[in-house]
Write a protein that binds this DNA or RNA. Structure first.
Lengths: 234, 234
DNA sequence: AGAAAGTGGAGTAGGCACCTCCGTATTAGG
DNA sequence: CCTAATACGGAGGTGCCTACTCCACTTTCT
């Protein structure tokens, strides 16, 4: 066992390694700002590299994005577990939502993955890992009397979705506006509120809804096109 | 003043008139269900007619959609005015939101127009007509002590957006779910809630945000494509 | 220095939405 | 009933856009 390394078959040339890093960093920025609708071409240019280079390193944008997101998703899952360790159940719940949303609102690509815009299966996997902890977080808060009894875990899913919308609407100029509306929603979760006129979705219904909505998000492009009375415009 | 009609230059042939109605009806359904992303081709087929027919009657889908939406938007504006006549300010505010959202959640095309997905100008016009009445509705409620003092008219805009998201997420299978979350948000608007950590957007900021978000919504298509590890799939 | 590895970006492929065109069908009315 | 005027249908043209490939050229490694 000397200094030999058996792991890597071919050590990757110096410039190649550097470019790979550049691509990953560029991808992080581009996907965060513009969502997964950005192309590998975009990422390449943002990194100051040619398209060909991007395609040699990553088969397609999903491979690149998938790797990128994995780590961030891990962060969210673990912050749910962290939150369970907070003594005050209400504070734990709030801390989790804030942490999770801080990450999501700063990264449009991540939002798209979590909302299942591109691949329902990927989203489902993530939800599998989050449902348990979040559910517990909620029940703990309910048992302590901090949250109304008729709140459901799926409500937290919808609150999450609503905050993502606020982030999309507000854009980069007011990156923290969601906190205002989260505060509002959380006040609405406290005991003693108005009776709900509609039942929450069950978990399977929620999964179904998430798997089928698609629609939301997509398209930023250079949309020069006019609008209502535009397209033909002879 | 006999039975003579001076108005129409050419009375439109019987079948043509019938088809025109069929198209309008079909457009209403198709745009409501699939949004303005549906093509005139889609509308034509839904009406059981050929594409050519659709294009003879309407220059493009925007002309058709614009006419269609105009009436509905009128409904919303007038329900804001109606709401000002309700004695209890809180009830008036709630009544307006519910009426307005009932219409919006049932019509995806309308939602897109109101959220400015296609044409910021059209949206701006609508907002011009709504801002006054809504603002008054809110201030009245605040003066009566029913709504917290630090709520802002733009908050109602965001609440509206959030409910549209819920409608998109829930889909046709739970068309009324938004009522649950509206209840929650409204409880959060009552006096005595947690202090907001972020200021509301000013009206100009709100308009800016709405004009620039684009992104949201679009694309339903027959997306056969796989997802994360899919596209190439050789 | 020579071979191996990596690069850039014009160009190809393919999909999709919008719209046109014209042979055929329907209607109006003389 | 017959003809002219009007309307219909839908195959296919056009243009746009995105994903991805290919190869002459550059950089690195030994």
């Amino acid at each position: 066992m000397t200094t030999e390394q058996v792991a890597t078959p071919r050590p990757l040339r110096k410039d190649a390694a550097r470019n790979r890093e550049l691509l990953i960093e560029a991808a992080r920025e581009v996907f965060a700002r513009r969502g997964l609708e950005a192309s590998l071409d975009d990422v390449a240019h943002h990194a100051g590299l040619g398209v060909g280079t991007a395609y040699r390193h990553f088969a397609n944008k999903y491979e690149l994005a998938s790797a990128l997101m994995e780590r961030t998703i891990e962060t969210i899952v673990s912050s749910a577990q962290q939150a369970l360790l907070v003594d005050d159940p209400w504070e734990g719940l709030v801390a989790f939502l804030e942490a999770s949303l801080a990450v999501q609102t700063a990264d449009r690509g991540l939002r798209e993955v979590l909302m299942g815009v591109h691949d329902p299966q990927k989203m489902a996997q993530v939800h599998d890992r989050l449902f348990g902890p979040i559910s517990e977080l909620l029940h703990r808060a309910q048992q302590s009397g901090a949250v109304r009894e008729d709140a459901d875990t799926t409500d937290l899913g919808f609150i999450n979705g609503m905050m993502c919308t606020v982030a999309d609407m507000a854009g980069d100029s007011s990156p923290d506006l969601w906190r205002r509306y989260l505060t509002m929603c959380l006040d609405g979760l406290r005991p003693g509120g108005t009776a709900f006129p509609t039942a929450a979705l069950s978990e399977p219904e929620f999964r179904d809804a998430m798997a089928n909505h698609k629609h939301i998000l997509t398209r930023t492009t250079k949309d020069t096109s006019a609008g209502w009375d535009g397209p033909p415009a002879t």
